[in-house]
Structure formats: C-alpha cells, structure tokens
Design a protein around this nucleic acid. Structure first.
Length: 108
DNA sequence: ACGCTGACTTGAA
DNA sequence: CTTCAAGCCAGCG
C-alpha cells in the first residue's frame, strides 16, 4: 500500500458518520507515520473532488481542528462535525478517544 | 533544478 | 510540564 490521493480519499470516505480519525492514523495505515503531513496536504486537494471526501472528519492527534481554516469559513468544519453529533469546545473535539476511528483496526 | 512551505507526529532535551 | 528538531514529499515561485 502506498500513499496516494485516491487511497487516502478512499479511507476518509469510509469514516463512519459521527466518528473521526487523525492524519497520523491514516499515515500509519500506509506504514509511514512520518508522512502525516502528506495526508493533510492531500486533503487540500480534496476540494471539489467527487464523490465527496469528508475531510472534516480528519483532525490531528489531539482532536484539534487544525484544518478548519481550509474549509472556507471560520466555523465551517466545526459546524459540520457538530451536525454529526460531535461536541466541540474551543476548536477541540470533546471525548476524542470515544469517537476516534482507527483505520488500522477497522479496515484490516 | 532548488529551496521553502505545510490540514502532522514523535522522541529527546 | 514545555520546547525543539527531524522526517515526510508534493506543489509552487
């Protein structure tokens, strides 16, 4: 398995509603945890991609909404997550461990 | 072609 | 406890 736009998009699309994962978890799924930045970078190319890529369900390892600035509005990412039942306080996911979705465990 | 940048993570100091 | 550097590698000027 290799890191690529399509592979990453495919995983992100499999994230269940109301769950989230981290860039590092996806990178680790490909065996290169150090390439987490690539995952984030590829999310940037997810704009206008079809089928839809729920990039808002991918956050950093602390559950912090570091990529919210790339969703256009200030609260766009937050609102998307909240509409799926995820609670966010101060740009951070509450009870992050409970909603965390690990592709390595779920897709093995 | 070269260097810088970044939606990240980890381990060491 | 916080701070820092390194590894990752595709775009862009």
């Amino acid at each position: 398995m290799k890191i690529s736009q399509e592979n990453i998009f495919e995983i992100v699309r499999k994230i269940p509603k109301g769950r989230v994962t981290s860039y590092g978890a996806i990178a680790k799924y490909f065996g290169t945890v150090r390439s987490a930045r690539m995952v984030g970078w590829i999310m940037n190319t997810a704009h206008g991609y079809s089928p839809y890529v729920p990039a808002h369900r991918v956050v950093n390892r602390n559950g912090l909404l570091t990529g919210k600035a790339h969703f256009g509005g200030e609260n766009t990412m937050k609102e998307l997550l909240e509409s799926e039942g995820i609670v966010i306080i101060n740009d951070k996911i509450v009870n992050f461990e409970a909603v965390f979705w690990n592709p390595i465990e779920e897709l093995k």
